[in-house]
Amino acid sequence: MDISLNVNGSDRQFSAEPGELLVERLRDGLGLTGTKVGCDTGQCGTCVVRLDGRSVKSCLVLTASAAGSEVTTVEGLTPPGGELTGLQEALRQEHGTQCGFCTPGMVMALGELVDKAAQEGTAPTEPEIREWLTGNLCRCTGYHSVVRGVQRACAASAAGRQDG
């Protein structure tokens, strides 16, 4: 099938099998290997990307059904060598990443929560952050440092809003 898809701000045209999964297109077709495959069955969250703004598991999306949409992967957050996003920087400072395998998925999933909070001018509570993490498995951090990272990112973004 002929497919067109906007990935990280650029329009991409290609041909794909109807049974192809979005994560396969991103990694194998487009070389965007920041998105990981941990389980392949929707359980682990390492493959999370944003699809028209919403976080989704790219191992549970057909490339064909994403056609016409905007996809953002971890590579699209900041240009190569550019500054980290507020969330990435906060996770770094709180040691919210260790081996790093889960991190791109965490960043893409939690990014939606942080963006929502910024739009609404609120900050998520700790239980809300933990609930939001239900779909992301991490073998290293024990999650506490990830939760602190989100809190730090939301606090920094709220302070930025007040200054601005």
């Binding site: 929707g42 969250g45 989704v56 929560l113 239900t134």
Partner: peptide
């Protein structure tokens, strides 16, 4: 249901 990503789709 599941998690935020499952609920989004």
């Amino acid at each position: 249901n599941g998690d935020p990503q499952v609920r989004n789709l």
